[in-house]
């Protein structure tokens, strides 16, 4: 693997590559994100943004209590978020544990949802605490079951103790398993990396190792996809594009619960990485309850009055 010519696979080259990154000033990043949060998105822009956001949702269920029935219902909603309105686009993908991948894929295909991807969380999600052999088997299971996207977690313990090459090599191995056909998203769990310096470093590490997407969080830890964390990651993909001419995607997940939050994310994308990233192939939002709020806001814009949860489906 060439790693874009940025590193040669040795620890020394990785350390040099990461060591050249500039720091991130937390207060400055927070202030920039807060300023962008004041953008006021109205009328036609809002309508466009809501539909775009719907198409970017990775509709997620990651519960110990997940059953085939629950997953199938999720898939139905993913394909036709508003059963009464065929204008509403399908979401980007459904995101499930790997034992639910086959069930999801079969159901999606059976209801005309071939275009909706199935993302499997992987590598001992959410903690990442398992042997590499287990992580590989975990991923292989998902691939065998038909996953088109793998959402792997990094080993935060390794990252925090400075074993960057260890983290790097895990991503490289999972990348190899995925081949070119399956999208690899690398989850940092930014709430455990804590500093924006770490988020920036993890972003560049994962991108060089072959990630197609970098993803904030598992949804099991707070804070998760805060606007400044997403800002830092968007700056990273923008800079990586300047360096390599390759666009890497970004997926915030966790804590994006309503339309306002989602629009803030799209503004961050628009004004940081740029409008080229405003597509589900480069930006996804991991969420569950968000979708219904987007639908209700959409109804409000169509009807001119506020909607009720009774008019959107609970799953």
């Amino acid at each position: 693997m060439s790693f874009y010519g940025l590193v040669d696979g040795t620890e020394a080259s990785l350390k040099k590559y990461l060591g050249a990154l500039s720091g991130v000033d937390q207060v400055g990043a927070d202030a920039r994100a807060a300023m962008l949060a004041t953008r006021s998105i109205k009328t036609s822009s809002k309508r466009w943004a809501i539909d775009t956001a719907i198409s970017m949702v990775d509709l997620t269920t990651l519960e110990g209590a997940d059953t085939p029935g629950k997953v199938q219902a999720l898939c139905t909603k993913a394909v036709r978020p508003d059963p009464m309105n065929s204008d509403v686009p399908s979401v980007g993908a459904v995101c499930v544990y790997n034992d639910m991948v086959r069930i999801a894929r079969i159901h999606l295909d059976s209801i005309g949802g071939e275009h909706v991807g199935v993302a499997a969380v992987s590598t001992a999600f959410p903690s990442g605490r398992a042997s590499m052999a287990v992580k590989i088997q975990d991923t292989q299971d998902a691939l065998d079951a038909g996953a088109s996207e793998i959402d792997m977690v990094i080993d935060r313990g390794a990252f925090l103790r400075g074993d960057y090459i260890g983290v790097f090599n895990e991503i490289v191995q999972i990348r190899k398993l995925c081949g070119t056909g399956v999208h690899l998203k690398v989850i940092f769990e930014t709430g455990e990396l804590v500093t924006y310096d770490n988020v920036r470093k993890a972003s560049f590490l994962a991108m060089a190792a072959g990630a197609d997407f970098i993803k904030t969080s598992t949804g099991k830890v707070t804070p998760a996809a805060t606007p400044p964390v997403v800002l830092v990651m968007l700056e990273a993909v923008r800079d990586f594009y300047t360096m390599t001419n390759t666009r890497i995607g970004v997926k915030p997940a966790g804590g994006i619960k309503n339309t306002k939050d989602a629009l803030k994310q799209l503004v961050l994308v628009n004004e940081t990485a740029g409008p080229e990233w405003l597509t589900p192939t480069l930006f996804r939002i991991g969420a569950s309850s968000l979708l219904n709020d987007l639908l209700m806001q959409r109804m409000k814009m169509d009807d001119g009055y506020y909607a009720s949860p009774a008019y959107v489906t609970i799953d």
Binding site: S40, I41, K42, S45, W48, P89, T279
Partner: peptide
């Protein structure tokens, strides 16, 4: 979904 040309913000006076 096509790549949008631009996310122009509508006037918000």
């Amino acid at each position: 979904m096509e790549t949008p040309v631009n996310f122009d913000y509508a006037p918000a006076p």
